[in-house]
């Protein structure tokens, strides 16, 4: 059965959602999601790296010997990471200051190596491209979701550049949401909710199948 390219794209959002279902890429998820802007740029960097790495791993999968595939992956991943790092340093120095170490750390992000190993190394280029884009977008969506919740509760508003919503905080912000414990609580609750919803859907599907 030929896998649908569309499915490979869409699965990254729910079924194989990297954060909530596969539980990989936790470091950046917890560390950078204190504001929506951070989450967005982090997500974008990961999308770029993931697509780049997936495409090249897939392209070279026939000529890559099994024994040295990990070094090959690392090179194929490190290249786009360095590109992202340099571009960000040049054009978004403020953002680079905030994301700091987490940009070069994308090299060792489980999501990317996992997709290379588990997917791109075994699938054609087009599927790998869709997979990278899908998983990356799913990841970005997660980061934006978590950071939106944390930023809203932790500062009372969401600030993107000069845009603020709401204009003034409606309540006294809970500083804990910007700290790591707040990140864990938020992540845990979202994971629980998603799992409850998926379990319910599965049950319904099973009931229909019967």
């Amino acid at each position: 059965m030929k896998r649908s390219v569309f499915y490979d794209f869409i699965k990254g959002f729910i079924e194989e959602n990297p954060t909530f279902r596969l539980v990989i890429g936790m470091c950046p998820t917890l560390a950078v999601t204190t504001s929506v802007v951070n989450g967005f740029w982090m997500g974008l960097s990961v999308i770029f790296v993931l697509v780049f790495a997936n495409v090249f791993v897939s392209l070279l999968r026939k000529v890559t010997p099994d024994e040295i595939r990990l070094p090959v992956f690392v090179i194929l991943i490190a290249t786009p990471v360095v590109i992202v790092e340099l571009v960000m340093k040049a054009y978004l120095p403020a953002m680079y200051e905030i994301l700091g170490i987490f940009v070069p750390l994308i090299v060792v992000n489980c999501i990317i190596i996992a997709r290379a190993e588990a997917f791109a190394f075994k699938h054609p280029v087009l599927n790998s491209f869709a997979d990278g884009l899908g998983i990356g977008s799913g990841f970005t969506a997660n980061l934006i979701l978590i950071s939106a919740i944390r930023e809203f509760l932790g500062t009372g508003q969401i600030t993107v550049g000069s845009f603020r919503f709401p204009q003034a905080p409606l309540f006294e912000p809970a500083a804990v949401m910007l700290t790591p414990p707040g990140g864990f609580i938020c992540l845990g609750l979202l994971m629980a909710i998603l799992n409850v919803l998926l379990a319910r859907r599965e049950r319904k599907m099973k009931a229909q199948a019967v």
Binding site: E172, A174, A175, V176, M177, T179, G182
Partner: peptide, 10 residues
């Protein structure tokens, strides 16, 4: 502990 971390001033 949650309140302490969330609104330490209060």
């Amino acid at each position: 502990a949650f309140l302490m971390a969330a609104w330490p001033l209060h």
